[in-house]
Amino acid sequence: MHFRARFTTIAATIAAAGVLLSACGSDGSSGEPAAAPAGPTSGTAPRDALATDFASTSQQPPSTAPKPAAGKNVWIIVCGKIVTGCNVTAEMAREAGDKIGWKVTIFDGNLGVGDGYNNGVRQAIAAKADAIVLMGVDCSATRGALQQARAENIPVIATSAFDCDDPSVGAEPLFTAQLRPQDEYPKYAEWLQAWGAAKARWLISANPKAKVIVLDQVGPLSTRYATDGFLGELATCGGCEVVETVEFHTPDMASGVLRQKFASALVAHPEADAVASAFDSEILLGGVAQAVSSSGREITVMGGEALPANTQYIRDGRGQSAAVAYSFGWLGYGTIDTVIRVLAGAEPVAQGWGWQTVDAEHNLPPAGQIYEPALDYKTAYLKAWGAQG
């Protein structure tokens, strides 16, 4: 899930702009990206794992659940309604809550502007919420208000967020529970690393001698874990090499600094024939596709989560070659399933939330639409909850 609000306020703002560009059907560019190479035809990536990535790593949602308690008042503190990933996931969670008769309030954290996250939690406390959901909002960004929620015995459930006991923070954990993506990857950090590895598998198969420029956004935990997973898998490729790591801060995407840094890396490394980014906004807003076009070289570009503008790049064969997609809607329904269990005094279970590799020949969603898997997760959840569709 591309939740930029888990970073600093300015980080969230810039990334949100990238998402908005895709939502409006713009490619975020003024130039025309160069043609992207075709998808995998050979290579040394583990074939079984790669085939699974294409087929989808998603599993069945939980088949049973405690009976949802009646009439619950649930507040979702969303990173920012301006961010597509945050907003879609929250709205799907509200849809799921409506199906079981809950009142679900979405509070716009507004990317942390004006202490939005803490304000949201405090308003939820004042509204006598039965549960508070942090969606794309880290513990470290709202520690004070979370301590108040704990004092009021209000459970806090997190989706796509990091608790305060993450090694980068090293403080007391304050979440009551977190959404478990899969049994194999029960923690969000583990899931992100595995997702990053899937991106490397595609690249290795597409180009087993790839000379890669890696875009490395400094600071965000989600980017850090995803990039670590990518690099770990790339290291299994004997013929591949990272020729340069382009470090940048989030404001560099909008200011043009990232594009300048990336263009300089292309000049410095004429042998470079591949690019890897953690999330799609780096390609859209950071000017990466345009810099590739200006270079006149054939370069494979592996992107992020398959936002609509990025899948259009892939469809057109220009600016991006592949992505590893995931469902925001599934995450929303899985969030409500987790809340149901916490309120029933049960442990969270794996939600089956996975990914699916997308390239020009595989799994492209309809033009302009957000990716959704073939599996009907909504019906499965409603059946488990004993709810009507």
Results as ranks from 00 to 15, higher is better:
Val83Met: 11
Thr105Asn: 12
Lys128Asn: 15
Ile314Gln: 06
Leu266Ile: 03
Thr84Val: 04
Ala90Phe: 04
Val121Arg: 06
Gly120Trp: 00
Gly303Cys: 11
Val104Asn: 05
Ser205Glu: 10
Ala344Gln: 08
Ile336Arg: 03
Asp183Lys: 15
Asn207Gln: 11
Val339Ala: 14
Gly287Cys: 05
Ala325Gln: 08
Ala15Asn: 13
Gly25Tyr: 04
Thr300Cys: 07
Asp115Thr: 05
Ile204Gly: 14
Lys261Asn: 08
Gly114Leu: 08
Val342His: 06
Val339Ile: 06
Val83Asn: 10
Val78Lys: 08
Gln290Thr: 10
Ser42Arg: 05
Asp216Gln: 12
Thr379Ile: 01
Ala350Glu: 05
Phe328Ser: 14
Cys237Met: 11
Asp108Glu: 09
Ala226Ser: 13
Gly97His: 11
Glu184Val: 12
Val288Met: 09
Ala124Thr: 11
Val339Phe: 00
Gly229Tyr: 06
Gly317Thr: 09
Gly101Ser: 04
Ser327Val: 05
Ser22Val: 01
Tyr185Ser: 15
Lys211Gln: 09
Gly334Arg: 01
Thr64Trp: 03
Leu221His: 01
Ile77Ala: 12
Val242His: 08
Leu258Val: 04
Ala323Asp: 15
Ala380Met: 10
Val104Gln: 08
Asp163Trp: 05
Val74His: 06
Leu146Glu: 12
Ala374Met: 01
Thr338Ile: 02
Ser168Val: 13
Gly136Ile: 04
Asp376Trp: 03
Ala189Lys: 08
His2Leu: 07
Gly386Pro: 12
Ala189Leu: 03
His249Ile: 05
Val113Gly: 10
Gly352Cys: 07
Gln356Asp: 02
Leu343Gly: 12
Gly345Ala: 07
Phe7Ser: 14
Ala158Thr: 06
Ser327Gln: 05
Ala15Asp: 13
Thr89Val: 01
Trp353Gly: 05
Ala126Phe: 02
Tyr185Phe: 15
Lys199Gly: 12
Ile76Met: 09
Val339Cys: 07
Ile157Ala: 14
Pro61His: 04
Pro186Phe: 00
Thr176Pro: 12
Arg297Ser: 11
Phe3Lys: 05
Val275Lys: 14
Met253Cys: 11
Asp138Tyr: 10
Phe7Trp: 01
Lys199Cys: 03
Leu192Ala: 14
Gly296Met: 04
Gly352Tyr: 00
Ser63Gln: 14
Ala11Gly: 15
Ala367Arg: 10
Ile340Met: 06
Arg259Tyr: 03
Arg150Met: 13
Asp252Lys: 07
Phe7Asn: 15
Ser30Arg: 13
Ala350Asn: 09
Thr8Glu: 11
Ile204Asn: 13
Pro373Arg: 00
Gly386Asp: 09
Phe328Arg: 08
